[in-house]
Design a protein around this nucleic acid. Structure first.
Lengths: 123, 123
DNA sequence: TCTCAGTAGTTAGAGTGTCTAACTATTATT
DNA sequence: AATAATAGTTAGACACTCTAACTACTGAGA
């Protein structure tokens, strides 16, 4: 994914940044939530958010609901990167389907989803 | 895998070491070959082999076929770790099959193999 | 309402993993 | 015999991740 994003004009989104950024909600996420979803510690996520902020992909806003918390939200550039990422995923998916056949690709997706939901049931 | 191996008595086999060690042939592999298979650079592999040697999992022997080359071969302990790893893989596979059903698991394996062979055809 | 335990985020510092550049020794080519 | 290519290595820098310890704020109970 980082290589695909680099080719599309986002060469500074390294894999470790994507590990965190992929979980960002458009209206802002808490550091604690990002840490839990990305299976990383809070200090690690803070570091990655620092970097994403420095690079212009996210900004920190105070959380109106809790004075201790902050919301990490994507900037306009962050949203562009997300759109590019979704496009890249779609193209990779189609390229793979072309290799093994649409039928096989659909089965693969179905079974992977099934396993994911068995291992990490959606809340 | 590192967590499973730790539980089985090999707590010092970190993920980065497994990335290299998983490609070791029983009769010895060259650093260049390990680098290509693990998608890492030669200096990185040298570093990991240094570590694996220090921990007692591999040893370096001269390659009788080429005076420049060396063969990195598993020690007795290295072979024990490999056996433990294979056992762990089998148990994880069965645990997942119990979650999603043997039929689904078999389909998943078939389609993953198909994709792997399309992306990286076996030489 | 005051206190204090718990939670959100952060900072500091260390260890690990990975790379590029440059080097040595040996082999293959001409 | 000279030179190019290859196998492995060393040096040094940067990136990633962790644990421990800290600040600020919240919320529950006396």
């Amino acid at each position: 994914m980082a290589a695909e994003l680099a080719r599309r004009g986002f060469p500074d989104l390294r894999p470790a940044l994507l590990a965190v950024a992929q979980h960002l909600q458009a209206d802002g996420s808490r550091v604690t939530d990002l840490a839990e979803r990305s299976l990383l510690t809070k200090p690690t996520v803070v570091h990655m958010v620092d970097e994403l902020e420095r690079l212009g992909y996210v900004e920190r806003r105070p959380d109106p609901a809790d004075g201790r918390a902050k919301l990490v939200a994507p900037t306009a550039r962050g949203l562009e990167a997300e759109a590019a990422g979704r496009e890249a995923i779609g193209q990779m998916r189609d390229a793979w389907a072309a290799l093994i056949g649409e039928r096989s690709m659909a089965r693969l997706e179905t079974e992977l989803r099934r396993l994911r939901e068995a291992l990490w049931p959606p809340a």
